[in-house]
Amino acid sequence: MNSSSAPAGSPRWMQAIVSAWLPPMYREPVLGDLEERFQQRAPGLRWYGYVGDVATTVPQVLRSQLRRIIVRGPACAAAAGDLRRRAEHLQTQVWLRNVALLVGSVVVIGAFLANAQGDWHFQETVHLAMTIGWVGAVWRSYGIHGRSTGVPASMSLDELREFHRRELTRQMNVGVGQFWYWSAPAAFLILYAWIAAVPDFRGAGSLLAAIVMQNCVIVWASRKERSVYQRELDPTEQGAAKA
C-alpha cells in the first residue's frame, strides 16, 4: 500500500463500508476498480457515480460469490496445491459467517425495538434471549476472531502457509475458555434488563438458561467449523511441504 503518494480518492469511511460488504477475495480488485472510476469522473459527478457503482456492483458480487459457494462447494473444491485460492475460499467462509451474524443481529434487534414500542407482542424473555445471543455472537465474531481479511497478493508460498497457520486458524479457532468472554455482554444486558429496563421482570431464570443453550450451540458450531477447517488444512500443508 502506498497511500501517501496516491492522489485524493474516495473517502476512507465509504471504502470501509463497501469493504465490509465485499467477500475478501473481491475486496482488493473491486475497491481498486471503484477507486479508478471515481478518479476518472468529473469532480462534480464523482460522488453520484461512486454511489451508483457501489449500488450496482456490490449486490452482483455478492450474488456471484453465493453462487460460487453453492455450485463449487466448500474450500476443498479448490485445486489441490493452490494455497492462495484455498486461503481465499476459507476467508470467504469467515466473511459469510460474520455477515450472516451481523444481518441476523440487525433483524433481531429491530424486532426487539419494535416489540418495545408495542408494535409486536412476543414473549419478552424469548426476545431478550435472542437479542442478547445475537449481540454476543456478533461481538465474538468481530471482537474476538476479527473480520475476514484479504489474502495479500505478494505472498510467497512460505508466507501463504504461515498465513494459513496463523491468521485463518485464529479466525476459526474457538476454545471453551472463550465461552466466558462471550457471556460477558450477555450478563451485563441481563442485569440492565433486570434492574433498569424491566423492573418487574420475572423471566431471568429461563432467560439465563436460553442464553446458556444459545452459547453452547455457538461453541459447538464453532468447534465443528474449526475441525472441518483443520481437516482441509492438513492435506494442504502436507502437499505444500512435499512441493
Partner: peptide, 27 residues
C-alpha cells in the same frame, strides 16, 4: 464481474492479481 466469475468457473479465463498502483488507491 459476475460474467468473469462464470467464465472462470467454466475454465474459459484465468485470473491473477497484479502489483498495486497509486491511481487505484494502492490496490
Amino acid at each position: 464481474y459476475v460474467t468473469l466469475d462464470r467464465l472462470e468457473d467454466k475454465g474459459y479465463v484465468s485470473s491473477s492479481l497484479s502489483e498495486p498502483t497509486p491511481e487505484r488507491g494502492g490496490r
